[in-house]
Write a protein that binds this DNA or RNA. Structure first.
Ligand SMILES: [Zn+2]
Length: 292
DNA sequence: CGTCTTTGACCCGCGC
DNA sequence: GCGCGGGTCAAAGACG
């Protein structure tokens, strides 16, 4: 397994002949028109074949990416355990329960993509409107919209990290309370997040993250003995019923640069894919399709 | 017993 | 200084 995953996808090189409608015009020279039409048809067919082939290869690549993601995450997990054991022996900070963050409902890939997409959404909106430019120097603020069951009154966004709630306030412009969380996966992780229900759509939770994790992504592969017979699936299912991403917003605004350094290999992989908006959309569609 | 949630108190910046 | 609103602390309780 090579950790430097270079994909070399040439999706952006799709170029459709833009001057095709020329042959549709009314022309007195029918033979020439027919000839032109045939040639154009041939070109289009070749293009179609090429695109289909490209599509097939992309699907294969996506499958490979899935595997690589799983492999990378297992490597990260191993790395994290060794790092934790080292640090634990040196500085006896009060260690929290560093495991048993069961991911129920969706896969690690979905988690990573969710996180990454949220970052993309935020970097889009903040880059365009630049509402708060004073926090860019120190804190990185990102926003993630999550659709949950409106009947679920718990403001819990299960994004793969471990959060400890430390406050809740009612704000002025929103009748729904706002919950404050701190990352409790690492003892000194500075990341905080605020979760509040959206005013317009009560079924949407808006999570605002600030700061960067000083640890890797704490993803846990689903237990190898995943053949849990009984209803233990939803035993501690405080997770949201479904996490959806607003893909239209991602697709409508391309040109996303991500100047920040990736914190984990998973994010690095994701960032290497964001260069091309077309592939981003395709991958997002494929991933969301697989989630559902 | 350790960890997390709840919740009122407290702090702090800001506008007047 | 004072009130207001948002963010955080920390004691107490819940939970496994
Ligand atoms: Zn963290």
């Amino acid at each position: 397994m090579d950790s430097s995953l270079s994909l070399d996808l040439k999706v952006g090189s799709l170029r459709f002949p833009t001057e095709v409608p020329k042959v549709l015009r009314n022309s007195p020279k029918h033979e020439e028109e027919g000839l032109l039409m045939k040639r154009e048809v041939g070109v289009l067919e070749a293009e179609l074949n090429r695109v289909s082939e490209e599509n097939r290869r992309l699907n294969e690549k996506i499958a490979i990416i899935y595997e690589d993601c799983a492999n990378l995450q297992s490597q990260i997990k191993d790395l994290m355990t060794t790092v934790r054991s080292d640090r634990g022996s040196v500085s006896p900070e009060r260690k929290r329960k560093s495991e048993s963050s069961a991911l129920n409902g969706y896969s690690d890939v979905a988690n990573g993509m969710t996180n990454w997409m949220g970052r993309q959404i935020e970097s889009n909106s903040s880059g365009n409107s630049c509402k708060r430019a004073r926090e860019d120097c120190d804190l990185k603020v990102s926003r993630l919209c999550v659709r949950t069951d409106p009947s679920d009154s718990s403001l819990i966004v299960k994004d793969g990290y471990q959060w400890r709630k430390y406050g809740q306030k009612v704000t002025r412009d929103n009748p729904c309370p706002r919950a404050y969380f701190r990352c409790s996966f690492a003892p000194a992780c500075p990341v905080k997040k605020k979760v509040q229900r959206s005013v317009e759509d009560r079924s949407i939770l808006v999570a605002t993250y600030e700061g960067e994790h000083n640890h890797g992504y704490p993803s846990q592969l689903p237990a190898p003995n995943g053949s849990s017979r009984g209803g233990s699936v939803s035993r501690h299912s405080s997770g949201p019923s479904n996490v959806t991403l607003d893909l239209t917003r991602v697709g409508s605004q391309q040109e996303v640069e991500s100047p920040e350094l990736p914190r984990s290999l998973v994010e690095q992989v994701a960032l290497s894919l964001t260069k091309d908006p077309g592939f981003k959309a395709a991958l997002a569609t494929a991933v969301s399709g697989n989630i559902l």
